[in-house]
Design a binder for these strands. Structure first.
Lengths: 169, 169
DNA sequence: TCCGTTTCGTTGTCTCTACAACCATGACCC
DNA sequence: GGGTCATGGTTGTAGAGACAACGAAACGGA
């Protein structure tokens, strides 16, 4: 059962996409590590918390918003907690759940780090594209995510009424 | 020095791109690991060798074509050699250089693995896009690579007369 | 109430990657 | 020839992710 092979156009697009996927994390990690001792994933965790009400999210919700598995997030949050950037506390309403909260120190770190990070994103990604291409990229990435994450469990969604935090009943 | 912030369109595109970059490697690694015990990067190394004349490339050239650093490649090739998929031999023409060569076993592995890998690429990436979007993706990725790898040292290029292999003088 | 199942999260182990240090060879130049 | 520098590659080690196993709390019937 031979599969449908790739056309030249498809092969070119695929090779380039693979190269981007291989190189982009290194660029992001490099800048953040030099400037703040953070992984890009660390930054993502802190950023998601910083945007949440009370700077607090449940681990599961945080994993969803950072496209991560729970074990991975657990390790990362433990390390961030050891550095004083995040706190963990059991959820009063659900004994199984844990709330992660951004500390003042973590908040300060995010604020100090964001400008450099945004500059890097501009320099290496957005400013390389025309406004039209930014729109195309958005649509393409959205289409890919429907295949990469069919259940739509991951990546950001509307937050209308669910704060994602575990509070008192 | 506040940086230029991101517009809504830019932010959306960026968030989605980050999600793709986060999820795609897992999908590729997962299928290849289950079916062949290979990392996607392992597969890339084997595939590049399989397309080279005499199934042989110098380590530096192989690193270029796989978008990898030399230390990383060195570790990977050592492990592939331990599994009998690749051989290393000093280059007769340049005492510093090492030629990596795909063994018959490695060749068989590539041939056996390629169909499943291509099917995965189709299913999770290319078939999610219209032909027009494939072209857009190609152009966008090309534009990004000029920023991510300004020296153009990495990723595939024309192979006109340079075989990339170190042979006898 | 009791038992089975699901959900939530942590931990241990193994593999892989990044980074820096290192060694050997070749190239250049006086 | 003998410095000096550049190039090609390997190795050691420390850190981060994948995966599986585990435990604890909630839920859902019988």
């Amino acid at each position: 059962m031979e599969p449908r092979w790739l056309s030249d156009e498809e092969m070119t697009a695929w090779v380039r996409l693979v190269a981007v996927v291989e190189l982009l994390p290194g660029v992001l990690d490099g800048q953040l590590r030099r400037d703040a001792g953070l992984t890009h994933f660390d930054y993502l965790v802190l950023a998601m918390l910083s945007e949440a009400p009370r700077r607090t999210l449940r681990m599961t919700e945080l994993a969803t918003r950072t496209n991560a598995t729970l074990p991975r997030l657990s390790h990362v949050v433990r390390r961030l907690e050891e550095r004083g950037l995040v706190e963990r506390a059991p959820c009063p309403a659900d004994g199984r759940a844990t709330n992660a909260r951004l500390t003042d120190s973590g908040w300060a770190t995010v604020r100090a780090t964001a400008p450099g990070h945004v500059a890097t994103v501009r320099e290496h990604v957005l400013d390389a594209l025309t406004p039209e291409q930014v729109g195309q990229l958005s649509a393409i990435a959205e289409a890919l995510l429907t295949r990469l994450d069919p259940d739509r469990r991951l990546y950001v969604r509307q937050l209308a009424d669910d704060p994602g935090t575990c509070r008192d009943r």
